[in-house]
Amino acid sequence: MSEAVRLQSPLVGFQLDARADAGVILRERAFCSHLNLRGEQSDPAFAAAIKQVLGLEVPFTPNTTTSAGDQTLYWLGPDEWLLVAAPEQAATLEAALRKALAGQFASVVDISGGQTVVELRGGNARDVLAKGCPLDLHPRAFGVGQCAQSHLAKCPLLLRPLADGFEVVVRRSFSDYFFSWIEDAAQEYGFSVVS
C-alpha cells in the first residue's frame, strides 16, 4: 500500500502506558504481512517452492515454527501454515508464492488486515495467559521453536514462546476483547503498554 494510505491497526485507540514495575508488558507489532498458506506436505514441490521464495523450510512438525530474519512460518494444520513478515510485503510475497506454487494443490491468501501480532513480556506474562488459556505454557512443555493455536477465554489465538515472553496472533475483530481481557487479568501484576 502506498505511503499516502492512513492505516489503523486492530488495536487503534489503546493508549500507551509505559510503567517500569509492570508484571505484564504488551506491545503490538502492527501492520505485519500475514499470508495463509495451504498445500500438500506429501508433494516435495510444495516445500521446495516455499523455500525458493522465502528461504525457509516449511515446518512440517505440528505446532512448530521456522524463522529467518523478520519472516516466520507457523504450522497451523497438516496442510496449513501462516507466514508473518514485515509490513508492506504481503502483495509482493503473495504474487511470488502464487507463481512458485502454480499448478500445485495449494493456496496463498492475504489476511494481513484480519489479524495483528502482540507481544507479552514481563515477569507475569505466562501467568496472565494461563488465566484464560488451557495450554501448558511451562517452558518444559512449550518452548522457543514451538507454536500452538488455542484460546484465551473465548478469543481464538496463535501463540509462540519468545525467549522472554510470548507472541500472540489475534484476529482483528477479537482484538478489543483480547486487550480488555488481558488488561483486566493483568491488574494484579501491573500492566503496561509500550511501543
Binding site: P62, P134, S150
Partner: peptide, 17 residues
C-alpha cells in the same frame, strides 16, 4: 474437562474442541 488427544496437536483441553 476432558483431555482429548488431537491426532496432530496431541493432548489438549476439551474447550478447544
Amino acid at each position: 474437562m476432558l483431555l482429548i488427544t488431537c491426532p496432530w496437536c496431541g493432548p489438549r483441553a476439551e474447550s478447544e474442541f
